[in-house]
Amino acid sequence: MSRRVKTVLAIVLGFGLLTAAGWHFSKQIRKSARKSAIRTALADRDLTLANRLLNEHLRDDDDDREAHLLAARTARRLDDLTGANRHLNRYRELEGDPKEVEMELILRGSQSGNLTGATGAMKLCVEQPDNPSVPLMIEALTRGYLAAGRPQLAVDATDVWLKRNPAPGERAYVLFLRGRGFELQGKIPEALALYREALALNPRLQEGTFALAEVLSRESPLEALPLYDRLREEGYKPTEVALGTARCRRQLGELDLAAGLVATLETAQPTNIAVLVEAAKIELDRRRPAEAERRLKAVLAVAPKHRDANVQLARCLRDLGRDADALAQTEAVRRLDAELEGKKP
């Protein structure tokens, strides 16, 4: 082997070694930076970003047990139970702490409205605020109270949560949940103020933007429209956002626009109850009660106690001039209201 060839080989080898070292080095940097970014995203309660980064990380390192637990929690907080199960199962396979698995399952139950043990858990949150489990517990409890139709308890939970002085991103989320608590109690001005405060802290909080738009679609539809526009551009809950936009257009008296929006939704989802009820309302305002009746009957066939559909059917029958039927339907609404009144917590 000539000297020249040896030199070239040495250069190639050296270059290769350097490339490998550089690649390894950059991978380590990337890994470390990603973990840091995950921590930041979680602290800011940017769960969508955290979830994406965690999944990227776990594609590179599927054996990272703690990352799987974190990914399971994050997915659960995003209501992605499939993802949460996948990560929790992998955490189990990697011999993760069974207590953590149990805790995660309890939090999942709480978050979806199973309030077994909630009183004790809330007591712990109050009495041991420094317990590391408290942040996750209090979030799951607040959401659970809302899911279980106990909005005042949710508001009370946010009192405890806010005392922990959460970081701005998390605080925005707490204010959003607190707003939901007020909204579900019919305290609309208070809810609106909280949604606005939450979005001032975190303008990217999509749940908050959506909640604000939904309330404003009734309270001040001109203000709601740009919020829905933004959410549509971001691809957030396309059906609900389109439906909210249609509701705004109806509130504004722009019935042709509203009808066009709902027609598209109805074609895609012909059995969606919310879509059918909104379509019926638009048809009633367009003085086409027969078109409304068809939709309302379809809703009531599958959801006979749907209050709004019952109310609209009474209006519809009156518009159709079927006075006896309208009278009977009006009485049905009264009975339903009495029943719902009795069920109030």
Partner: peptide
Amino acid sequence: VGSGAALTLLRPDPIPAAPIE
């Protein structure tokens, strides 16, 4: 190249947002 690649991978997608008043 390595560090640039790492930075590119870590950058979240920008979501344009303005405060809602």
